[in-house]
C-alpha cells in the first residue's frame, strides 16, 4: 500500500501541477501563455548561468574518477560503509551534498552515467539529491545577510537533516525499488 501511494504520487504530481497551476492562473486573470514564456526565459538563463560551475566541477570530478583516486578512497571506506549497509559509491555524494550544490549535481551525474539512471544506486542518488539541501551554503547566505556570526546549534541540526535524508533515501529506495 505504501509503495502504491508513493508510486501514485510520482505519476500524478507533475500532471496535476501542469493542470492546476495554469487553471488557477487563468481564473485569477493571469495571462498564462505570456507569463509561462516569461518564466521559461528565466529558466534558460539559469541553465546557462550554472554552466561554468558545472564545468569546473565535472572537470575536477572526472579527473579524480579517471585517475583511480576516487575508487581508492571509496575502497578504503568500503568495509565500514558496507557493514552499515551503505553503498560505498554514494559516500562522495554524502560528503559533497551539504557543501556544494553544483558539486553534488556533478557527482550525481557521474553516478547516473556510470550506473544508469534507472539502477537502484541511480535512484538512491536521485532521491538523496532531491531530499537534502546545501546546508553550509544556506547558513552562509542567510546568516551572512544579517551579520550573524554564531550559528549555534543550527549547523548541527542542518547536517543531521542531511544525514537523515541520506540514510532515509537508501532505506526507502531499497523498500520501493529494491
Amino acid at each position: 500500500m505504501f509503495a502504491d501511494i508513493t508510486e501514485e504520487l510520482s505519476q500524478l504530481a507533475i500532471p496535476a501541477i501542469l493542470l492546476f497551476i495554469p487553471l488557477i492562473g487563468y481564473f485569477r486573470k493571469v495571462k498564462v501563455y505570456e507569463t509561462f514564456v516569461e518564466g521559461a526565459g528565466e529558466g534558460f538563463h539559469t541553465a546557462i548561468r550554472i554552466m561554468p560551475f558545472l564545468i569546473a566541477m565535472l572537470v575536477a570530478i572526472n579527473i579524480f574518477r579517471a585517475s583511480g583516486a576516487m575508487d581508492f578512497c571509496i575502497g578504503v571506506a568500503r568495509p565500514v560503509l558496507e557493514a552499515f549497509g551503505i553503498p560505498p559509491d554514494l559516500a562522495p555524494l554524502a560528503i559533497m551534498r551539504p557543501i556544494s550544490g553544483t558539486g553534488s549535481l556533478g557527482l550525481t551525474t557521474e553516478i547516473l552515467n556510470s550506473f544508469g539512471p534507472d539502477s537502484l544506486i541511480g535512484k538512491m542518488a536521485s532521491t538523496i539529491l532531491g531530499s537534502t539541501d546545501t546546508t553550509l551554503y544556506i547558513i552562509t547566505v542567510y546568516f551572512g545577510a544579517v551579520g550573524v556570526f554564531k550559528p549555534r546549534y543550527s549547523l548541527f541540526v542542518g547536517l543531521l537533516g542531511d544525514f537523515t535524508g541520506f540514510i532515509g533515501s537508501i532505506i526507502v529506495c531499497r523498500m520501493l525499488f529494491g
Binding site: D118, T132, V172, C173
Partner: peptide, 16 residues
C-alpha cells in the same frame, strides 16, 4: 521514467 523518484523524495524529505 525520470519522475519515478518523486514519491520517494517527498517521503524522505518529509522525514528529514
Amino acid at each position: 521514467n525520470p519522475s519515478e523518484i518523486v514519491g520517494a523524495t517527498i517521503l524522505v524529505s518529509l522525514t528529514a
